[in-house]
């Protein structure tokens, strides 16, 4: 190679490479460390208090414009019946939109199951919603940066940016994401971000007559939720996935999935 050719190609290469490098913004690790957030939203569910009325599901759907009759919901309530023989039977008719009104347990393909009262060892309700994980699997898999975690720990979906590929629906270990039938994008619980950011509580928390649901700030030692998480025996769902879920349950059984 002649010296002239070498210089030429080097110049072309360097300019080309520098253009592509300029597309990457360099991230300052110091910025992450400096931002010590004093707000981290967390949710507390007391399964002893839940009566399965489903007002939380109805309230959530109305507040967040999820079509009532569509078979998708941001929050739902499951009924668990543990028999004396050690069987675990669970159902959630329409996500408990209309509550639990029958003692027949919906077993999908195998029909409705009736368990005699005398065979029941334990029976209780477990409300579920997005866990707003500290390391959310759903966010990691988004190919376009449409879903993200805010500084206060809430996982949101940018409706203008979501392409509806559904990776996040598959990626979520808790099955809380779904395809919004009207907006045609992926949708999920936002912890009612519009309400909690404006001094209100979430639609489901305000709808619960029995105080089974609470939302609070984990970083505030005086907060009832923070206190309960620190001082009581609380559990989280599917800890083994390492997503660090932030919905804490009082009275969680190992049978609950």
């Amino acid at each position: 190679m002649k010296r002239r050719d070498f210089l030429k190609s080097a110049a072309v290469f360097v300019s080309g490479a520098s253009v592509s490098i300029s597309a990457l913004e360099i991230f300052e690790p110091g910025e992450i460390l400096a931002a010590a957030p004093e707000l981290r939203w967390a949710f507390l569910v007391d399964t002893y208090k839940c009566v399965g009325c489903g007002f939380c599901v109805k309230g959530c759907k109305i507040e967040n414009d999820i079509p009532l009759e569509a078979n998708v919901t941001r929050t739902w309530v499951e009924r668990y019946v543990l028999t004396k023989d050690g069987d675990v039977v669970a159902d959630s008719p329409k996500g408990a939109l209309n509550g639990f009104t029958s003692n027949l347990i919906d077993q999908n393909a195998s029909g409705m199951k009736k368990i005699a009262d005398t065979d029941i060892a334990q029976a209780f309700f477990v409300p579920k919603l997005c866990n707003h994980c500290e390391t959310p699997a759903c966010v990691q898999v988004c190919p376009v940066g449409a879903t993200y975690q805010t500084a206060d720990g809430v996982v949101l979906v940018d409706r203008t940016w979501c392409i509806g590929c559904g990776y996040c629906i598959m990626g979520c270990p808790y099955g809380v994401r779904f395809f919004h039938p009207v907006e045609k994008v992926v949708d999920k619980c936002t912890f009612c971000y519009h309400r909690i950011s404006n001094g209100q509580t979430t639609a489901c928390v305000q709808a619960c007559p029995f105080g089974a649901r609470q939302i609070g700030n984990l970083r505030d030692p005086g907060d009832p939720v923070a206190k309960a998480v620190l001082t009581q025996r609380v559990g989280v769902l599917r800890d083994e996935y390492g997503t660090k879920p932030h919905v804490f349950y009082i009275g969680l059984n190992m049978e609950v999935r």
């Binding site: 399965g52 003692n103 029976a123």
Partner: peptide, 9 residues
């Protein structure tokens, strides 16, 4: 609606 739910409210 009467349900037998011994470990719940």
């Amino acid at each position: 609606s009467s349900l037998f739910m011994p470990s719940s409210g």
